[in-house]
Nucleic acid binder design. Structure first.
Lengths: 97, 97
DNA sequence: AAAACATTTCGATATTACTAGAAATATATT
DNA sequence: AATATATTTCTAGTAATATCGAAATGTTTT
């Protein structure tokens, strides 16, 4: 993971609405949550939500899977783990080093 | 820490230049690095760098301390730890829960 | 107090992001 | 095939951010 990729992930998490969406998806686990449910729960207009979702997808933080006419969004755990690893490995001072 | 505060921290880390500055400061430890050194190392104009630094300060991610005419920038470790804790506590699925 | 050094603020421009209504697309049901 | 449902794309207005040269500010040295 390059610095650019990590920065991109942080950037997309750096918006209150998107961070809420992301948290909601993490709580949901594997199956994820449909766009419509997110819309209802967060009270965001269709088009606005859709843009935020595609931002998160473009950063590789979440993915979408269609089931019938419903699109489920779910977390890309590998990416989340990479971001956490970055903060710990690159950023955290280990006094014993 | 509110969601807004966490989002703000992510937002400011979500820029390649600022992320490089932050990484550099973490590596530097307690004492930190002067603005001038950052400027030389990263090859960024004074004013541009100054803006990025104040963004990081505004998010509470770093602080500045003057020594003579040199300003040292250093990491606010509490904030960094909060951000890491957020990702782990709010976001990471613990299958044993 | 003048000159040198370090950093920030000002000012101006260019790019990118946010928001959301309306129209379009895709899928399912009747 | 027509209608209903779910979601995205189009379009457009507004706001925020990025960039950096030049001028201003604060600090030290002579």
């Amino acid at each position: 993971m390059t610095t650019e990729e990590i920065a991109k992930a942080f950037k997309e998490l750096g918006h209150a609405t998107r961070l809420l969406v992301f948290k909601r998806l993490v709580k949901a686990g594997e199956r994820g949550v449909s766009v419509g449910t997110l819309k209802d729960e967060l009270g965001i207009p269709n088009s606005t939500l859709s843009h935020h979702i595609s931002s998160l997808v473009s950063a590789g933080l979440i993915k979408q899977q269609r089931e019938g006419r419903v699109l489920y969004c779910s977390v890309e755990y590998d990416k989340l783990l990479s971001v956490i690893a970055f903060l710990q490995d690159e950023c955290c001072i280990d006094e014993t080093k």
